[in-house]
């Protein structure tokens, strides 16, 4: 097909390869910086591989060295524990993805299949909320969290998105509408009730979209910054993004602690990278707007 287009094809591949390099190289530089002793960095080292590769930056952001040693390696010596932040991030995004996907699947099923008065109105109101930018509800939600006394607690962090987002409800309803009714009708005749239908028949049939929405929710909540910054800035409840922000502010006065920051950054990438390696095909193929109307 491209027999007459060889040179064009070569150029196209060169462009694609360039795009790939531009995408990946900054991450390589992140790792490279994280493995460099701070002293080398400030001496202006720009070789592709650090001359004296070291793990000290990882050890100090994981809180494995004492303050004096951390200061010697270019840190501020302040208490920092990325292991805990990683764990908090996992709890935060994992619990939100799990509970939210399940609750929204229940609602999506009711909106798609059950018949009762007020159903379409309720759905319309929820979809209308897609239009409200998060910052608008974030201000009063912060006040609410403060009044409930859940600032700097895990429940305070997860609650606003634990049960639902309008998008997940919308997405799953559209999917449930698209599956053929025959299977459910056969089960109905056998006397399966709505709950049995949802739990034993519809959910197992919907693994693909459920994983899609679950994965997307994990990724977005993994990246969350503003809400956790307001509600979970305390040491106990810091997620990775907030931990990085706090660490940045603690930088010793002369310049940011780049080697430490890049070590912390690497830690914020590894878990999602693992997700991509194990579920990459699923994730890549699920990015599709064509089915949404």
């Amino acid at each position: 097909m491209f027999a007459n287009l060889r040179p064009g094809r070569v150029v196209a591949w060169i462009i694609l390869t360039t795009a790939l390099v531009l995408t990946i190289f900054p991450f390589y530089w992140m790792v490279r910086t994280a493995l460099t002793p701070a002293a080398d960095l400030y001496a202006g080292s720009t070789s592709l591989w650090p001359d004296h590769a070291t793990l000290i930056n990882f050890r100090r952001v994981l809180g494995l060295v004492d303050a004096a040693e951390a200061r010697a390696a270019g840190g501020s010596g302040a208490q920092i524990n990325f292991l805990r932040y990683t764990l908090n991030s996992m709890i935060y995004s994992g619990s939100i993805a799990l509970v939210q996907t399940f609750c929204c699947a229940m609602a999506g099923y009711a909106f798609a299949r059950l018949r009762f008065p007020g159903r379409d109105l309720a759905f319309g109101i929820i979809v209308a909320a897609l239009m409200v930018p998060p910052i608008f509800t974030l201000l009063p939600n912060f006040v609410l969290a403060k009044q409930l006394g859940v600032l700097n607690t895990i429940p305070g962090l997860v609650l606003p998105s634990l049960l639902m987002t309008p998008f997940a409800v919308f997405f799953l309803r559209q999917f449930f509408l698209s599956i053929p009714r025959e299977v459910e009708e056969a089960a109905l005749l056998e006397g399966v009730g709505p709950w049995g239908m949802f739990w034993r028949i519809v959910l197992p049939m919907s693994r693909g979209p459920l994983i899609t929405i679950g994965l997307t929710t994990i990724v977005w909540s993994w990246k969350d910054y503003l809400w956790p910054l307001l509600v979970g800035k305390g040491e106990e409840t810091r997620v990775l993004t907030v931990g990085l922000g706090v660490f940045l502010q603690q930088s010793p006065n002369r310049a940011p602690d780049w080697t430490g920051l890049m070590a912390g950054s690497v830690l914020s990438v590894i878990p999602v990278l693992l997700l991509l390696i194990f579920l990459g095909k699923r994730l890549v193929e699920s990015l599709n707007f064509s089915g949404l109307k």
Partner: peptide, 14 residues
Amino acid sequence: RAALLVPWLVPNVT
């Protein structure tokens, strides 16, 4: 495609 997706997976803070 997976490689091109990497920056999307990473927090904007990072």
